[in-house]
Computed example of a mutant assay.
Amino acid sequence: MGRAPELLKEYRERLEGIKSPLVAEDAAWESCALQARRIIRDCADSLHRDRVEVRGSLIQQVESLGMQRATQGIYGVHSIRAGVILFDLVFDALAETVAAVPSEVGRFRAGVRALQKGIGDRLEAGALGHDTYLLNTVREVNAAGQRQLAREIHDHLGNHVNLALRQLELHELDLDLRPEDAAARLAAVKNTLTESLGIIRDLVTQLRRAEHEGTLQSAFTAFLESMEITEPQVRVQVNGSEEWATQPVLDEVFLVVRECLRNSLAHADADHVLAVVDIAPYGVHALIEDDGRGFDASAVATAGRANGVASATERVELLGGTILFASDPVAGGTRVTITIPLLDPPGEPADSAT
């Protein structure tokens, strides 16, 4: 416990090194540091008592923390990365604590198990809170869409159908009295019903718009077709609803991911290239990876030969996001992870009839 301040200091420095949003603001770091202190305390108690001591009642509070981080646009992957870093730091501290007394292996085992359980249980609770927020948000967005559809049906389609019915009633009343007006009346009914069919087609088109042109998926498909790729095998997948992001953000995401794909296709000599874009109510997350020959990202940037890397980084940072390049020039393979927060939470759109 005497080393706790030192461990927390190094913990924060490592999180800053990977540009984690958990240290971007003081409030986010304080909640992260609080959980770290509790984990360290549980490890110390387990080491001291030679049995696993993890305070489960405190872990349950993390579920609300998971919901809070979701509202802040902090992806679960950042919590996992932070957990891995904390595990490494505390594991080494536990090992150093018992290194002078080899006979205390049992205590070391209890401390490590407490470390594993403390981090694992918190990640699980945080994921539950995160999922709860996401499900509630999706439910709210779906409800807003249903309300929009109800308004469209009531205001436009319902009005036209009522008008057609009224015209038919008038036709029945006037059929015997003024038969010369029957043809005109029926023509008006036909026109009204034709307009109603047009409204129905428009509503169906809106409901299916995610399947038509203009989506990120179709844009990436068109890009890959233009490249006339024979090798390597390339797969691009877009998940989520594009309604959660503005068009300028989607345009930037496309340009950045496309640049990463171009780099892989041009330089990696890979067998497989994968790009996955996840669009959620609180942010956009993208992963691009290949199994080709890697490169030293820091060396390339220092040498001034990373125009693509610099351009992608600048675009993401201008959106308030982060981009990380991980590559191994010896073992091979490159992975790029992109996180862009969406500052405006989804809700019922003001101009919903688009």
Rank of each mutant, 00 (worst) to 15 (best):
T71Q: 11
D26T: 13
L175V: 13
I288F: 01
V257A: 08
A99G: 00
D88A: 13
R51Q: 15
E243F: 02
E140H: 06
V52G: 02
N191V: 15
A301I: 15
N142C: 07
D50A: 15
R69C: 02
G283C: 02
L8A: 00
S46H: 07
L86A: 12
T97L: 08
L165E: 15
W244L: 05
L168R: 06
A275W: 02
E124I: 12
I323D: 01
G240P: 12
A299D: 14
D344R: 12
D351G: 04
L177W: 10
K190M: 05
A114H: 05
A150K: 11
I18E: 06
I200G: 00
D26V: 14
V77I: 15
Q237F: 04
A95H: 13
F254D: 06
I279C: 06
L203C: 05
L274E: 07
L7G: 04
G198N: 11
Y133D: 02
V101W: 04
D328E: 07
I340W: 01
V236N: 05
I80A: 07
Q247F: 05
S46G: 05
T215G: 09
Q237E: 13
L265V: 09
H48I: 01
T313K: 09
R201F: 05
M227L: 12
R293T: 15
A150H: 09
E169G: 01
A144L: 02
L8G: 01
Y282D: 12
E124D: 09
Q60L: 12
I200L: 14
Q148H: 07
L134V: 13
V62K: 00
L89P: 03
T137R: 00
D131V: 13
Q68A: 14
A4I: 08
D271N: 14
R201D: 15
E211W: 14
G283F: 06
Q72W: 14
T322E: 03
T230K: 09
V276F: 00
L197E: 14
I85H: 03
F325A: 11
F295G: 00
D155F: 10
L86Y: 07
G83D: 03
D42T: 06
L261W: 07
V112E: 02
D202G: 06
A245I: 12
